[in-house]
Design a protein around this nucleic acid. Structure first.
Lengths: 234, 234
DNA sequence: TAGGCTTTTTAACGATCGTTAAAAATTTGA
DNA sequence: TCAAATTTTTAACGATCGTTAAAAAGCCTA
């Protein structure tokens, strides 16, 4: 009680129900929201607490009042967007088991991109920070990013009945995630190549078309479990 | 002549042949080499001139003596690694026209990864800086990165006789490049998932296997030009 | 209303950044 | 060899960074 009260924990008003719900959101949430936006725009080391303070319309030291460090805030943001993603992701599989692979992938991608259009931050945060890590200098939330992929994979394996080998499924899912993350997060780049607007429906349609084009043959393969899809000769 | 001598151009000893070739490389080259290494480890805004100076074993202001700015150095580095890549890339197509798609892709990837093992910088520099750009705050060498992909595509189109539509070919090549860049540049991440060493032959073999698994059906498709690969029903 | 919380603001710290200027060292050419 | 030109080193600038401490303001309760 005497010596170990170093960590400042802001004591929020506990469980008082949001009486009127007056849209004055508490400061902590404003910070999370602003930080999500800033971390979606800049890689971890380039995003600054001062940027976040400005985006949240508060003085920047207030960030350190609610979060002990930039690293802790970053991890809180990742947890936040990841939870948001999981919750949505599980519902995207509803009803797919009654469809053929093509129709199923089609519908899944529709739901996926619908979500991505409203919540692009998760993909950008991951894409912006996935590459950096050399052995040293690892970014704070790195293992959480690993968990993100891992849970995504598990959702897929649980929801879609597959007969392919684990190896084949992993190759498919890693490639699916890689393409999705990049096409969604680096839309500025790909769209500029194609001469489309990055955030537009048209761009998302191109991404969907491309992902179906590339991935559908292998999705069929791992669902049906056929040996190696006629690769013997040719 | 009087007023416009603002740009300091270090006058190198011109065309004197490297008499003994004594491995004391000129400072400018040392800087390019060190900068390549540093920019391959950190995104543009996180890499610093002081890091580069330390890597080159010189005092950091000397960097500004040879390059007017960090941006100019970055562009010089991109040009350097891109040229290195083009030169190698063209030769990877040799003899592929006499092979079937599977054997051709197999050999191409072998050559590709052989190069990547010796010159990983290009892929990491691109991967580290591809995502960042929002509309504003564009990284200096961004259009050069676009050119990088564009030339790579052109090489492919020139070397491989294809019957598919331009749309199909673009979908294939964008996905090929995206997967290659990410698997090669973010090896730390993917390898840690698989429990392999990032730089190892084993990891590169996984990447090759994965890229063949995912891309071979569509490579066959765009080479043979068959309408839509039996997607009608299923 | 007064006193004790919590929250916010202000000011400042040490560190690092890109860049510049000037001094020092080195190399070159006559 | 000596002056001129080139290259390198030293020192410093303004700016931004994460974080901390202390003052100020706001709030609740007694």
């Amino acid at each position: 009680m005497t010596t170990l009260s170093k960590i400042k924990i802001p004591k929020k008003k506990p469980s008082i129900s949001p009486k009127k719900g007056h849209h004055k959101q508490p400061t902590r949430e404003k910070i999370i929201k602003a930080a999500t936006q800033v971390f979606a725009g800049y890689p971890y080391h380039s995003a600054s607490i001062r940027m976040i303070g400005k985006a949240a319309e508060i003085d920047h030291p207030l960030v350190n009042y609610y979060f002990p460090s930039k690293a802790a805030l970053f991890e809180a943001v990742i947890d936040d967007v990841a939870d948001e993603y999981y919750q949505a992701n599980m519902s995207w599989f509803d009803g797919l088991d009654k469809m053929n692979p093509k129709a199923g992938l089609d519908l899944y991608l529709d739901r996926f991109f619908d979500f991505a259009l409203k919540h692009p931050s998760a993909f950008r945060i991951i894409a912006l920070n996935l590459v950096q890590a050399e052995d040293h200098d690892v970014i704070p939330g790195y293992e959480r990013i690993r968990d993100f992929f891992a849970k995504t994979k598990q959702n897929f394996k649980d929801a879609v009945p597959m007969s392919g080998t684990d190896d084949d499924i992993d190759m498919f899912l890693n490639s699916f995630n890689t393409l999705a993350i990049n096409y969604l997060a680096a839309g500025t780049y790909y769209a500029s190549i194609l001469g489309i607007e990055p955030g537009s429906r048209q761009y998302l349609e191109w991404v969907k078309k491309t992902m179906m084009f590339v991935l559908l043959p292998r999705l069929r393969h791992i669902i049906s479990g056929e040996s190696k899809g006629g690769e013997s000769k040719d």
